[in-house]
Simulated scan of single mutants.
Amino acid sequence: MKVPKEINTYCPRCKKHTVHTISLYKKGKERGTAWGVRRHEEEKKGYGGQKYPEQKRTAKTTKKQLLKFKCKDCGYTLQRHGIRLRKVEIAA
Results as ranks from 00 to 15, higher is better:
G46L: 10
Q79I: 01
T21G: 10
T21I: 12
K87Y: 11
K70W: 03
D73V: 12
L66W: 11
G32I: 06
T21N: 09
E42H: 12
T61W: 08
Q65I: 09
K45Q: 14
K16Q: 15
K26G: 00
T61H: 11
L66N: 05
P4R: 07
E43F: 11
V3F: 10
W35D: 08
E30S: 12
R86E: 08
T61F: 09
K27W: 02
T21Y: 12
G49R: 04
P53N: 09
R84F: 00
Y76D: 02
R80F: 06
N8W: 01
K44H: 13
I90H: 00
K26Y: 11
F69D: 06
C71K: 08
A91Q: 08
Q55G: 10
Y76K: 07
K16C: 09
Y25L: 06
I22C: 07
E6P: 00
I22N: 04
K2N: 13
K44F: 04
G36D: 12
Y25V: 07
K15F: 06
K51E: 14
A34K: 11
P53E: 14
C74P: 04
T77Q: 12
T18E: 14
T61L: 13
G48A: 00
Q50R: 08
M1P: 02
A91W: 00
I22W: 04
K60I: 05
P53D: 08
K56C: 02
G48Y: 00
T21K: 15
S23K: 14
I90N: 05
C11V: 05
K5T: 02
R80A: 13
Q50D: 11
Q55T: 15
K64M: 08
K26E: 11
E43H: 10
C74Q: 04
Y76A: 03
F69P: 05
Y10F: 15
F69I: 02
V19T: 15
K64Y: 13
C14G: 01
A34T: 09
K56A: 04
K72G: 06
C11N: 03
Q79D: 03
G48D: 01
R86G: 06
G75Y: 01
K64W: 03
V88I: 15
L66D: 05
G46A: 07
K64H: 09
K56L: 11
G32R: 08
G75N: 04
T21S: 15
H40E: 15
K64C: 03
R86N: 07
I83V: 08
H81N: 03
Y25P: 00
R13A: 06
K27H: 07
G75S: 03
H20P: 01
N8T: 08
G49C: 10
L78C: 04
K68C: 14
N8F: 02
V37P: 00
I83H: 09
H20W: 02
T21D: 12
I83P: 05
E41T: 05
K68Y: 03
H17E: 14
M1K: 06
T33G: 04
Y25E: 08
